[in-house]
Design a binder for these strands. Structure first.
Length: 522
RNA sequence: GCGCCUGUGGCUCAAUUGGAUAGAGCAUCAGACUUCGGAUCUGAGGGUUAGAGGUUCGAGUCCUCUCAGGCGUACCA
């Protein structure tokens, strides 16, 4: 129909001509013009079966690695070292990790970057307090939140301490050895907390991926001077600014007092990522509220040539996490919810959800509950359009019904159960027996297309949506087309086993990209 | 004030980027079973896609305006 305008012909006529000249050679069984000029194609059963067999016998399920892989930097998680990770870091961490896994699977060279906040005035106060606590420091750092509060209280109550804190800020920045040692120790402990969370969350972030804010300290002055050379710098109220055409608010790169800001750091990071790391795509998985900031920084980076024209810069924005009543997610007394506590609660709740129906040994229960609980938290987050706000609901995410990780994991376990019962070797081929099997097979073949689209749009919910459709379809197939029951012909049995196996593999691969594990028994 | 985002059955979300009769899940109601794991499956009711115009063969999707809500708005990150 798109051709109709260009050719100035009746769309139905064009469609008819196309259909008549189509080479159906084995792939397509039938082609038909429908409605105002749509062309409906029916895939050939034999071709579909053969493609599924190819996928079934291939480690990558028939999905080829990109012929033209690119270097992609994915910036995600980015916790602040002054505080413990809280729910605000959850979405960035989960979505960023999924995007990284996905691009990696498709063949791109992914460079994960954890841009942790390890620099700024708070650290003067924190290390001064750490020093004061002496050997006990490490111990009281178990609860960073409390440590921060105590340090702040000390800062507010004691002028001498406050002076020292301010003095220490300057000292770290000027490279004072003693203060730097304290600072490094503090960061090390705080980062250890994050790693505990990453471990629990089953996220692929390691210390090697950390490229902290402080890493760019040395380049900040150069960013400003380069902007100056490019003639983009304007002084306003004593601050060094870039005024972009059409924007009311400037990008401030240097404060009146000479200090740098996060726009400066981001520009330095963009330069590093594009020119040193050589990234062709740089994705920032950050809260939607920072949209304005990234828009400006990206523009400056391109206009100054910090980042070459052909590098794709994108802000992978996501909405805020809300509670069941639609308000921002907080503890009962209005504080922020620590991520570690949330994850522990997920495991406890998962335990309750699964023990209601089955008997587990203590060990089984522990390990399955971890997989189920963490999977539920991740899946629920990834399953919705990332740009809208996300309503966090324990009951919904831990349900066996609907588009949940448990439903997928259940389907997977159920298929494994078929194979336990079967016990033999599959010998045979796929033969499409009815319309439902045809639909299932076609659905299985669509996996690659879905992944490609999810990668391009950085939209994990494309994957969850697909998995849900696939599993629903499989359940229907399974209900109607018996596999191991009496009276099923050997040939049919083998064919259905192959379809079931490929379904299981597809579920597993899909969940794996989402960072979610499966279990053989649930 | 200016800017960005959102608005889809009672609730939570989809909709292949402008395509066919807007789809699921909860919840409600009604069915299927001597269960290859019923933690399943089948079906029903429920919609003027916030509202009004416009663009065209065709609009939830694009444009304009209105309404409602959220967020951002120069030296925090």
């Amino acid at each position: 129909m798109a051709l109709a305008k260009a050719l100035k012909q009746n769309p139905r006529q064009i469609a008819q001509t196309i259909v008549e000249n189509l080479d159906l050679s084995g792939v397509i069984a039938k082609a038909e013009v429908a409605g105002p000029g749509f062309i409906n194609l029916w895939l050939n059963d034999a071709w579909v079966a053969q493609q599924c067999e190819h996928a079934e016998h291939d480690e990558r399920l028939g999905i080829v690695k990109k012929a033209d892989p690119v270097k992609v930097v994915v910036d995600y998680s980015g916790p602040n070292m002054a505080k413990q990770m809280h729910v605000g870091h959850l979405r960035s961490t989960i979505i960023g990790d999924t995007l990284s896994n996905l691009l990696e699977f498709l063949g791109d060279e992914v460079i994960r970057q954890n841009h942790i906040g390890d620099w700024g005035t708070q650290f003067g106060m924190l290390i001064a307090y750490l020093e004061e606590m002496g050997e006990d420091g490490s111990g009281s750092l178990k609860d960073l939140e409390q440590f921060y509060k105590d340090a702040k209280a000390r800062f507010d109550a004691d002028a001498a301490f406050a002076d020292k804190a301010r003095e220490y800020v300057v000292k770290i920045q000027s490279g004072d050895a003693h203060c730097l040692t304290l600072w490094k120790r503090f960061i090390d402990i705080s980062l250890g907390h994050c790693e505990e969370v990453y471990e629990k969350l089953d996220v692929n972030l390691t210390r090697d991926d950390v490229r902290a804010e402080s890493f760019y300290n040395e380049s900040l002055a150069k960013v400003v001077s380069d902007l100056d050379k490019a003639g983009l710098l304007t002084e306003s109220d004593g601050a060094q600014c870039v005024f972009l055409e059409g924007d009311e608010i400037p990008v401030i790169v240097q404060k009146r007092d000479g200090g740098y800001l996060y726009a400066t750091t981001d520009l330095a990071a963009l330069y590093y990522r594009a020119n040193v790391l050589g990234a062709k795509r740089i994705s920032y998985v950050v809260d939607a509220r920072q949209g304005g900031h990234f828009k400006q920084v990206f523009r400056v980076a391109k206009e100054t040539g910090f980042v070459p024209e052909d590098v794709r810069l994108e802000h992978i924005a996501f909405g805020t996490m809300m509670d069941k009543s639609g308000k921002p997610f907080k503890t009962r007394d209005g504080g922020t919810v620590k991520l570690i506590d949330l994850l522990d609660e997920a495991v406890v709740r998962a335990k309750e959800a699964i023990t209601a129906k089955d008997d587990y040994s203590q060990e089984e229960l522990e390990s399955v509950a971890k997989i189920v609980g963490i999977g539920a938290v991740k899946y629920a987050d990834l399953a919705i359009n990332r740009e809208s706000n996300y309503i966090f609901d324990w009951d919904k995410m831990l349900s066996f019904e609907g588009n949940t990780s448990l439903y997928m994991q259940y389907a997977y376990a159920r298929i494994q159960s078929i194979f336990r019962k079967f016990g033999g070797e599959i010998e045979g081929e796929i033969i499409i027996g009815d319309a439902l099997e045809h639909r299932l097979a076609v659905m299985l073949l669509r996996f690659e297309e879905v992944l490609l689209r999810a990668a391009d749009e950085a939209a994990p919910n494309q994957i969850t949506g697909y998995l849900y459709d696939l599993v629903t379809l499989f359940m229907r197939f399974y209900e109607r087309n018996p596999i191991l029951k009496e009276g099923v012909e050997e040939q049919t049995k083998m064919s259905r086993l192959l379809l079931a196996d490929l379904t299981a593999k597809t579920i597993k691969q899909g969940l794996d990209i989402l960072g979610i594990q499966v279990v053989d028994k649930l």
